[in-house]
Amino acid sequence: MADGTRAARPLSPHLQIWRWTVTMAASITHRATGLALSAGAALLSAWLVAAALGPQAYAPVAAFVDSPFGLVVLAGFCWSLTFHALNGLRHLYWDAGRGFALKHATMTAWLVYIGSIILTVIVFAAGLAAKGGA
């Protein structure tokens, strides 16, 4: 305003106003998993540096990964990766100008949620099998 004060203009409605839909949830989850993957990338990088530095640097990192909390972090990283990758494919499909019809977008959002959970279970089962067999 001319006198330097801000007018109390209405804000656009945010999360608590809208009725939840799966497309909206998928959009929010895409961003949330992107943030989680940023932390995951830093951890992956730290794990690589520890492996390069030697067994003394690697031991505490390996102990963390083997701990119950470490397994939860790994599961979260795995699901974030599969969700973000599958929903990223959905975004690329949109970029091609397809899949915008409401029914279609809702279906692909459900597919991303279900598919990412199935992929996470498969990768984790393979990991536990490799661990058990080693």
Binding site: G88, H91, F124, A126
Partner: peptide
């Protein structure tokens, strides 16, 4: 970068699972 990451992510997930029980 997303298109580059897709196959690399498949490789990473599969490799880390395969090496889950590895020693140093």
């Amino acid at each position: 970068s997303a298109v580059v990451l897709l196959p690399l992510a498949v490789w990473l997930a599969w490799s880390l699972a395969a090496h889950a029980g590895d020693s140093y």
